[in-house]
Lab assay of single mutants.
Amino acid sequence: MDETGKELVLALYDYQEKSPREVTMKKGDILTLLNSTNKDWWKVEVKITVNGKTYERQGFVPAAYVKKL
């Protein structure tokens, strides 16, 4: 869990989004888990830094590609 009590997951593999509802992740990324009720796709939040500014983006990743921490 992070400092706000949200559950975290670890990306076990790289994943490139294939639709606007998904998010890209790299092996080793730590993501915030938002919803894991679907056994195949989990909703996560990723933080992306571009030119020194951090953005948060929500989307789905394959559940088999992440592990709860």
Rank of each mutant, 00 (worst) to 15 (best):
M1I: 11
M1A: 14
M1W: 09
M1Q: 15
D2S: 11
D2T: 10
D2H: 11
D2G: 13
D2L: 09
D2Y: 03
D2Q: 10
D2M: 08
E3T: 12
E3P: 11
E3K: 08
E3G: 11
E3D: 13
E3W: 04
T4C: 13
T4M: 14
T4H: 14
G5M: 12
G5E: 14
G5A: 15
G5H: 14
G5I: 14
G5W: 11
K6Y: 15
K6A: 12
K6S: 10
K6I: 12
E7K: 08
E7N: 11
E7S: 13
L8M: 11
L8R: 12
L8I: 08
L8W: 13
L8E: 07
L8H: 10
L8V: 08
V9C: 10
L10N: 02
L10R: 09
A11R: 02
A11P: 01
A11Y: 02
A11K: 01
L12Q: 03
Y13K: 14
Y13P: 00
Y13H: 11
Y13A: 11
Y13T: 07
D14S: 08
D14R: 02
D14I: 02
D14F: 03
D14E: 05
Y15K: 00
Y15D: 00
Y15A: 01
Y15G: 01
Y15E: 01
Q16S: 11
E17C: 10
E17K: 13
E17Q: 12
E17G: 15
E17Y: 04
E17A: 15
E17F: 06
E17D: 04
E17H: 07
K18Y: 04
K18N: 10
K18R: 15
K18M: 13
S19L: 08
S19R: 08
S19A: 07
S19E: 08
S19C: 08
S19Y: 06
S19D: 11
S19G: 11
S19P: 04
P20E: 11
P20C: 09
P20R: 09
R21C: 12
R21E: 13
R21M: 12
R21I: 13
E22N: 04
E22R: 04
V23H: 02
V23D: 00
V23T: 04
V23N: 02
T24F: 03
T24V: 02
T24R: 05
T24Q: 04
T24W: 03
T24L: 02
M25G: 01
M25H: 00
M25A: 02
M25R: 00
M25L: 08
M25C: 05
K26N: 07
K26S: 08
K26T: 08
K26E: 05
K26I: 08
K26Y: 11
K27A: 13
K27I: 05
G28H: 04
G28R: 01
G28K: 02
G28P: 00
G28D: 05
D29M: 09
D29N: 05
D29A: 06
D29V: 03
D29T: 06
D29P: 00
I30D: 00
L31K: 00
L31C: 07
L31M: 14
L31Y: 08
T32C: 08
T32M: 10
T32P: 15
T32N: 07
T32K: 13
T32E: 10
L33V: 05
L33S: 01
L33H: 01
L33Q: 00
L33W: 01
L34M: 07
L34C: 06
L34I: 15
L34D: 01
L34N: 02
L34F: 04
N35F: 05
S36L: 04
S36M: 07
S36N: 08
T37M: 10
T37E: 15
T37C: 11
T37R: 08
N38Q: 09
N38W: 05
N38H: 11
N38T: 06
N38M: 08
K39N: 13
K39Q: 12
K39M: 10
K39G: 09
K39Y: 06
K39I: 12
D40R: 12
D40N: 13
D40T: 13
D40I: 14
W41F: 06
W41Y: 07
W41G: 00
W41S: 02
W41H: 03
W42N: 01
W42C: 04
K43T: 07
K43H: 09
K43C: 11
K43V: 14
K43S: 07
K43E: 14
V44A: 01
V44E: 00
V44H: 00
V44K: 00
V44M: 01
V44L: 03
V44F: 00
V44Y: 00
E45V: 14
E45M: 12
V46H: 13
V46W: 04
V46D: 03
K47G: 08
K47N: 10
K47C: 10
K47E: 11
K47V: 13
K47F: 11
K47T: 14
I48N: 07
I48V: 14
I48Q: 08
I48C: 10
I48L: 12
I48R: 07
T49M: 13
T49A: 09
T49Q: 13
T49I: 14
T49E: 13
T49R: 11
T49D: 10
T49H: 11
T49W: 11
T49V: 14
V50R: 09
V50I: 14
V50N: 10
V50S: 10
N51A: 13
N51F: 09
N51W: 07
N51S: 09
N51P: 07
N51M: 11
N51C: 12
N51K: 09
G52Q: 07
G52L: 07
G52N: 09
K53P: 05
K53M: 14
K53D: 13
K53L: 14
K53W: 11
K53F: 14
K53T: 12
K53V: 14
K53C: 12
T54R: 09
T54V: 14
T54N: 10
T54M: 12
Y55E: 12
Y55C: 12
Y55R: 09
Y55K: 12
Y55T: 14
Y55D: 07
E56P: 15
E56I: 15
E56M: 15
E56F: 15
E56A: 14
R57N: 05
R57D: 04
R57Y: 05
R57K: 13
Q58G: 05
Q58E: 09
Q58F: 06
Q58T: 10
G59W: 03
G59F: 05
G59K: 01
G59N: 00
F60R: 03
F60N: 04
F60Q: 03
F60S: 03
F60W: 15
F60G: 01
V61A: 03
V61I: 08
V61P: 00
V61R: 01
V61L: 02
V61W: 00
V61N: 00
P62H: 02
P62S: 02
P62T: 01
P62Y: 02
P62G: 01
P62N: 03
P62D: 01
A63M: 04
A63C: 06
A63E: 03
A63W: 01
A63D: 01
A63P: 04
A63I: 03
A64F: 08
A64Y: 08
A64C: 13
A64W: 08
A64E: 10
A64Q: 11
A64V: 08
A64T: 11
A64L: 11
A64K: 14
Y65N: 06
Y65C: 09
Y65L: 12
Y65Q: 05
Y65V: 06
Y65E: 02
V66S: 01
V66K: 00
V66N: 00
K67C: 13
K67G: 07
K68E: 06
K68W: 06
K68Y: 07
